[in-house]
């Protein structure tokens, strides 16, 4: 994923910016009410934008789906807004992981860290609420919810 810079716009919302490989600078302004603006910066004057699109929440969803986005991000944002102190994170299970070909029950993640694995993203598919007998393979991305400390613990467990 491209590195996203988050810039606060007090009273308005946040601006998320990133650079494309082709060298364009792109930003999305997320208004507090959920409206979004998509903008592309001028290549001559990087202080200003040349293209601005105004999107309602529904239009933003349509666009992100057209671009192949997953709906998990949207859901997690809602969860985080509702409950303070709760974190949600994505942990990739890569080749060196000690949990390859082992099940969720084996890890006892919930017992050890209080963190729940709420979904696993495998390729273009998302497995919601995986059962205890779900087995990890290389490239799986576990979507975890819990306290930031607990998530760090799970990250270590899922590591090499």
């Amino acid at each position: 994923m491209a590195e996203v810079r988050e810039i606060k716009l007090p009273g308005v919302g946040v601006r998320l910016e990133f650079d494309t490989e082709a060298g364009e600078q792109v930003a999305v302004v997320v208004h507090r009410g959920g409206r979004r603006e998509l903008m592309v910066y001028d290549s001559d004057d990087p202080d200003i934008c040349t293209t601005v699109m105004h999107l309602t929440p529904a239009e933003a969803r349509t666009l992100s789906e057209a671009l192949g986005g997953s709906t998990v991000t949207e859901v997690s944002r809602v969860v985080e807004q509702r409950i303070e102190g709760l974190a949600i994170d994505w942990i990739e299970v890569d080749e060196g992981s000690s949990f390859l070909d082992r099940s969720i029950a084996d890890g006892m993640f919930r017992t050890r860290s209080g963190v729940s694995i709420v979904a696993v993203i495998r390729g273009i598919e998302t497995v919601p609420a995986p059962g205890p007998d779900f087995v990890f393979t290389v490239g799986d991305v576990a979507v975890v919810v819990g306290t930031p400390a607990g998530i760090d613990q799970v990250r270590t467990l899922l590591g090499p």
Binding site: I7, K8, L9, P10, G11, V12, R15, A27, V29, E37, M39, Y41, P46, D47, I48, C49, V52
Partner: peptide
């Protein structure tokens, strides 16, 4: 349509 402009956060922070 200046919410994306580089100077906008400084304006809003001043407010």
């Amino acid at each position: 349509d200046r919410l994306g402009y580089r100077e906008t956060p400084s304006i809003l922070n001043l407010l």
